[in-house]
Design a protein around this nucleic acid. Sequence first.
DNA 1: GGTCAAACTATCCAGACGGAAAGTTCTTGG
DNA 2: CCAAGAACTTTCCGTCTGGATAGTTTGACC
Lengths: 202, 202
Amino acid sequence: MSNESHRAVQYGGGRDALLEATIRVVARAGLRKVTNRAVAEEAGVTHGLVSHHFGNRDNLIAEALRYVLERSLDRSTLESGTGSVDDFARTLVEMATGDADGQAFQYELILESRRRPELRPLVASLYDTYRDATRRELARIGLADVPGLDHAVFAALDGLVFQELADPDPERMQSALDALHDLLRSATVAPPPHVPARAARS
Amino acid sequence: MSNESHRAVQYGGGRDALLEATIRVVARAGLRKVTNRAVAEEAGVTHGLVSHHFGNRDNLIAEALRYVLERSLDRSTLESGTGSVDDFARTLVEMATGDADGQAFQYELILESRRRPELRPLVASLYDTYRDATRRELARIGLADVPGLDHAVFAALDGLVFQELADPDPERMQSALDALHDLLRSATVAPPPHVPARAARS
DNA sequence: GGTCAAACTATCCAGACGGAAAGTTCTTGG
DNA sequence: CCAAGAACTTTCCGTCTGGATAGTTTGACC
């Protein structure tokens, strides 16, 4: 149609536009500002489309989280694949600084999952994605079998990303990553004392 | 007055009641549910009292964060003081599991500070409290001078507390703390390679 | 060109909201 | 006992909300 160039959203693209708009509104203004009208305006449609596609506001938010999960599985953003702790740390920094909205959205929804059980499987899946990537990187640097290490390292990275969102300080983040890197390097040459004998031999 | 036993809040105690109610409502239902009426009901007063004491909703929330900070400075909950990594980890676990509402409230407000600059000094102060406590514990176990280590360790603890709130799994938390403990013990006997020569000598 | 279903818009309404202002109650001090 | 100020309640109102429903537009298919 000749007025197509005036339309903010291509016909039939309203649903995805609403999901992407939801992510931006959450990141920018928090869950409180996620109203049917605010999201519709951000998406360039009218607020009736929310009811049409999602039924209600809660479903919209849950679908937006699912949408983010699908996109993150496609991208494997956490994993550099080179076996280098430096590269791993660098992809992390890039993730935190390059997609602050996406990260902020995830943290808001993680907290929201405490009060909305239907979000918990999605949050668990999100965390599994990150923990699996952490495990694979640890395996590449020779630390596959240390119990709990994957959880400790992922928690450190998660904590750094969260703090960088809240109170950005790239130097602090870099020095923390350097220290973590050094701890892990120490651990590859002198494994922690309670590694099982079998693992120590191999 | 003979009807005093019927009053939920002692006369003159409305302000503190509203602040404590705000913390509970944030933790339980998120910032979206923090309305003048919801908080007043939780506090056992009427919603006009919010305007009277705080002027507006934003001030109420900021004052609630300040209130939490004052209470946490009084309690130094993160620090065991024994120099034992085990004790440090244990006080952390207790903090995360024993005051889930307080922790949840802090994380919600940390994210909110991204969009409300007036909260940032309060959040920075909160983080300083935690980082100082982490630094002192690291000093007690002989790791005072490793650059960035305090940030890495605090981030790991912060990440663990956050994940425990969102998706409680005490075994995972314990194994992560054990692994972190082992990494730090390794570091006390074989300091990381890039420690400055001066520090290595001393 | 017509039909039909999908996608979307416009309208409506009951209820909740923030906060201001007037009024009431309680406590303290003289 | 009274006055005054602090603390609190009640009332009001414009605005915003969620979501339902009727109506319109678009695109695919025959």
